Amino acid sequence: MPVYTVHAPSATAANVRTTDKFTFVRDGFHFWAMVFGPLWLIWNWLWLALIGWIIAIVWLDLILAKLGAGFLAIVSADILIALLMGFEAASLQRWTLSRRNWRQLDVVVADDEEAAERRFFDRWTAKQRGSGNDPLAVDRGSPPPTRDVPGQPFSKPPPLPGSSIIGLFPEPGGPG
């Protein structure tokens, strides 16, 4: 089953009004990114990745040509770069989203994107109802203990040891 990561535009925009902007990125191999690498990058608005891809291909081809590699070696290297592009396309999408200050909300396993959306929004809306519609709220339990509260056992500091030995070792000269 494919795995999808869910991304929201910013840390404060993960609410019910902006759910149409949530993005689902499928993890795994992207065939069209392998076959049409630069066009796939343009289609998905991955401009910095496109510039990096162009620089990498030109640099690799020039280095191989200067080293005296044949045409078949250069084409083989380009095919390997295309395979790498197919395998890392989803990582490039997630990297670009994180550069644009999007945050990852969840990871969803589903058969297709529509099922992933359904599964995510079922879980997300249930969590929204339970947290009082504050997506950044975290239940941390009771407040931490404070010092110097009369009648509370945690307000007394621990007793200081009578000797300079710390740990589970017996006191020198004491009962063993």
Rank of each mutant, 00 (worst) to 15 (best):
L48G: 03
A90P: 07
F31R: 07
R147G: 00
D148M: 07
G176P: 10
I42T: 15
F22I: 11
Q152T: 01
T146P: 00
P161D: 04
Q152R: 02
P158E: 04
G70L: 04
G162W: 13
D27Q: 05
T125P: 09
S98R: 13
G52C: 09
F121L: 11
G174H: 02
V108H: 04
T125D: 15
A8D: 04
P157Q: 10
L72G: 07
S91G: 01
V6P: 00
L64T: 14
P157I: 08
N15P: 12
E88Y: 14
W40D: 02
L92H: 02
L168V: 10
I54W: 02
I51G: 09
L64P: 03
K127S: 07
G173R: 01
E113M: 05
I79M: 15
G52A: 13
A65N: 10
R17I: 04
E171P: 08
F36I: 12
L92W: 12
I42F: 15
P175M: 07
I79W: 01
A73W: 14
G70W: 08
L84M: 13
G130N: 11
G167Q: 10
L168D: 14
W43Y: 15
P145C: 05
V58M: 00
S155M: 01
N101C: 11
L80G: 15
I81H: 05
R123W: 06
L48I: 02
I74Y: 09
T12Y: 09
E171M: 08
